[in-house]
Design a protein around this nucleic acid. Structure first.
Lengths: 229, 229
DNA sequence: AACTTTAAGTGTGAAATCTACATTAATAAA
DNA sequence: TTTATTAATGTAGATTTCACACTTAAAGTT
């Protein structure tokens, strides 16, 4: 009954984080090799337990910070997983979050200490519990998000080229995009600043660098835009 | 730490259901007048606690069934709410689900016994805790869902007219739709069966009745369709 | 200095989709 | 038979999407 605040059925609440990063090899996720039982030695998402005096969002932020040293990161709650035996030790419900980080920024010392490692989403190892399902779910959500928010920018460095942006979207959507159409669609959003600076790393000619214009982006969001790539 | 399966931080896990129904007055939600503390006498979503040996989806199904007598209903998990004091009695995390039901089908005896009542979404009373937020969230999700799945059919009787379908979508999206464009878009999906039967209730001429063609719909879903209304 | 190489940057026309819009048709009631 | 009511139906113009290829800039090579 509803009015029965019985403690008989209290459960442990975990938070698991799907941490996406992007570099010139493609879209990646950060995984950890567990050094404790159960499933010691197997790969897993990074996660932890919700504390009594903590909100889920903050648990996710804390966990991300513990393993990467990062703060102020885009995170979004995904789904609550509750299969009875999903964790063999004890009944645990897990709420998943996904994060998008600039892969260059994280604290490499930290992730080494925790035996964490980046894997391409196309050849990540098998994960413990229901973590594979969580990752698939997160990729679907990420794909959808790209069409209503330009969240891709979270995954790129401060200054980036059109090519990098294109390749990021190709990695997220796992399909090829037409370069010219992509650029004109992005430009029509008017949320980028074109810098005078060029990145000379990738070609003789050099390609212009862009930054993301947060103010214009916020304006756009009010008229809920859609980006069809 | 991750490897610490401590029971110190176990919490109560609630499930709250946003139950949508539709009739010729528009889109409605089912609310209950609480007859227990806290917040006795105030309006609330229907809900309950997750049991130790129960999956969240089943808890939602059980709760829906308790209050409406219905089974086999479309339900979808929405979000986990975890503000520290969202429930003043005890730390409780709530996972919300929304359900779409045919308003004619539910057990009216049951909802009377529970002091439950249908309210138009446009003039529902203020709700306890964070339930208002849950409802808003559910409406946003429902709007989005209509664009990628024709879930509106769950809210209509077995046989329905084009006008009913149109008005349902107008209620969900809370905007007027052009009748001719709507009908041709729906027809282009090819997921309806036009019956020979007419509904003579609403006009002299009578309007054809339709049923939803599940098989064709399943086919369509494979090529992930989008419906822009 | 000329030539080669590499990726960057740029525009158009055809096809598909979306939008706005008004008249005729069927039937019951008077 | 006339009237009243809602159902049913099509089109043309505007907009958006899509497919597609050549020129440009600059560094490297001879």
């Amino acid at each position: 009954m509803l009015n029965n605040y019985s403690s008989a059925d209290k459960v442990l609440l975990a938070v698991d984080c799907i941490i996406f990063g992007f570099d010139n090899q493609g879209l990646k996720i950060l995984l950890i090799k567990r050094d404790f039982e159960p499933e010691k030695g197997k790969w897993s998402l990074i996660g932890g337990f919700l504390k009594r005096d903590e909100v889920l969002d903050n648990a996710a932020i804390r966990i991300l910070n513990t393993y990467t040293g990062l703060n102020d990161i885009y995170m979004e709650q995904l789904y609550a997983y509750s299969e009875i035996d999903r964790d063999p030790v004890e009944r645990t419900i897990s709420v998943s979050y996904y994060a998008l980080i600039n892969i260059e920024n994280h604290n490499t010392e930290l992730i080494k200490n925790y035996h964490a490692q980046w894997f391409s989403i196309t050849d990540a190892p098998n994960l413990i519990f229901d973590h594979n399902e969580m990752v698939e779910h997160a990729i679907r959500r990420l794909r959808y998000r790209t069409s209503i928010k330009p969240i891709g920018f979270e995954l790129l460095p401060e200054k980036f080229t059109m090519r990098q942006l294109l390749e990021l979207y190709e990695a997220i959507l796992s399909k090829e995009l037409d370069k010219r159409n992509f650029i004109s669609k992005i430009n029509s959003l008017e949320i980028l600043n074109k810098l005078d600076e060029k990145d000379m790393g990738s070609s003789r000619k050099g390609s212009y660098l862009y930054t993301f214009n947060k103010e214009k982006y916020e304006e756009k969001l009010l008229n809920d835009f859609v980006l069809n790539l």
